[in-house]
């Protein structure tokens, strides 16, 4: 199964901006984040095909998934 992963802001450092990733079997966004080596506590908004989703969302072939770092200042 192939899904496009888009990374934003500091998540790109040492990784990539956008890449088509191949996975075998079911994969949740949580697993994608873990495989990329991004600490879960640093993850903020998760978007899948333009929709705001959470870590448990299962991805399907062709999904486009965007990961944004957590921001909380004002």
């Amino acid at each position: 199964m192939r899904v496009t992963i888009k990374l934003f802001a500091d998540f790109r450092q040492g990784r990539f901006a956008s890449r088509v990733c191949e996975f075998v079997g079911k994969v949740s966004i949580l697993r994608v984040v873990q495989e990329l080596g991004i600490p879960l506590a640093e993850v903020g908004i998760l978007i899948c095909n333009g929709r705001h989703v959470d870590f448990d969302t299962e991805l399907v072939e062709g999904d486009i998934c965007s990961l944004f770092p957590k921001v909380g200042g004002g």
Partner: peptide, 9 residues
């Protein structure tokens, strides 16, 4: 709304 450095949402 929230900000951090060059980023915000």
């Amino acid at each position: 709304g929230a900000v951090a450095g060059w980023y915000g949402q």
